[in-house]
Amino acid sequence: MLGLEYFSFAEQWSPLFLAFMLLVLAGYFVVIGPLSSRFEGSEPVSAGRKILFISGMLVMYLAQGGPINLLGHTMFSFHMISMAMSYLVATPLLILGIPVWLWRYFDRVNPLREKLGFLSRPILSAVLFNGLFSFYHFPAIHDFVMLNFWVHRLYYIVLFIASILMWWAIIQPIPEKDKSTGLAKMGFIFLNMVLLTPACALIIFSAEPMYATYSDPATWAKAMGYCVSSGSTALLSQFGGPEFFGYLDPKTDQRVGGIIMKFFQEIIFASMLAYVFFHWYKRENEEDDPLPAEITTAN
């Protein structure tokens, strides 16, 4: 299906990356379990938080190590699915899956807190993440990153850190540090929705395919060479180019990718807007209640 049958199990499922993710997951359970007593204020972690963290790890693995990652090298639409899963779905799940007492510890021992703490400011974090995401999808930058393995890895790590900063401003897992009002958070979420629109619009409404990685056979084969063991020459002789795998022509595939990214973003941030508005409205009503609880009970 979608050409996956032409690739080996290792090429589809990235065993080394899977081992790394399992190691991180094991470390998480060791820290919140046997080692938790070493952390000030530690308490048992709920099943809900554990499920959130496991879900975040699973989504991240599927996006960056599973078949979706491989398909992201043959079709731009799957590339955008991978990006959305990594930075709009997995990141908030991972943040929410880590207990508050562990976040407090990280915040206390973080050596860069004083020097780089400004990066977590809402507007700056929104501009940073969306700017890096948009810059990555300039055609020349995207093709360069896809063709250089270590640049590709480094850029994805930087994007992940930027997505943590962006989501941190929305979620803020340390309650005593959450100084933003509900209205400010809604404005910040709306800002994120707006900032990504130009890049998605450029991708969707472009008259021609923008990325050589998905339209030029030689460029595609070189980019794919980092994912498979057969090498660029063998890929070209066996498949001829990315069109062998695509059920859409490059221009349509590109447009679908842009729509997918914008759809993911709109659904996720619209849900966050509704969540923040509900809790803000509820808190405002509680503060406006003129009768103390004991009087209400007495009556």
Rank of each mutant, 00 (worst) to 15 (best):
G3N: 10
Q12Y: 00
A19E: 12
V24E: 04
L25E: 11
Y28R: 11
V30M: 08
V30Q: 07
I32M: 11
G33L: 12
L35Y: 12
S36N: 05
S36R: 10
G41M: 08
E43M: 06
E43H: 05
E43I: 00
P44S: 07
P44V: 02
K50C: 11
K50Q: 09
I51P: 00
L52P: 01
F53D: 02
I54M: 14
S55K: 04
M57E: 08
M60H: 04
Y61A: 08
Q64V: 00
G72Y: 06
G72K: 07
G72L: 14
H73M: 03
T74G: 10
T74M: 13
S77M: 11
F78T: 01
S82D: 14
M85R: 01
M85W: 00
S86D: 11
L93V: 06
I95Y: 10
G97D: 06
I98G: 10
V100M: 05
W101N: 02
L102F: 14
Y105L: 14
D107Q: 03
N110C: 12
P111Q: 06
E114K: 11
K115R: 15
L116K: 11
L119I: 02
L119T: 09
F133W: 13
F135W: 15
Y136W: 06
N148W: 06
R153G: 01
V158Y: 05
F160P: 01
I174Y: 00
L183M: 10
A184V: 05
G187R: 05
F190P: 02
P198E: 00
P198Q: 10
A199S: 12
E208C: 03
P209E: 11
M210V: 01
M210F: 02
M210D: 04
Y211F: 15
S215L: 13
S215M: 08
T219M: 09
W220N: 02
K222V: 00
K222H: 10
K222D: 07
M224R: 07
C227L: 05
V228P: 13
G231P: 09
A234F: 04
Q238W: 03
G246K: 12
Y247G: 03
D249F: 10
D249C: 01
T252Q: 07
R255S: 15
G257V: 02
G258F: 12
M261N: 04
K262M: 08
E266V: 13
I267W: 05
S271A: 15
L273C: 03
A274R: 11
Y275C: 03
Y275S: 08
Y275W: 13
H279I: 09
Y281V: 04
R283M: 12
R283N: 15
E284P: 05
N285L: 15
P290M: 04
T297N: 00
N299I: 13
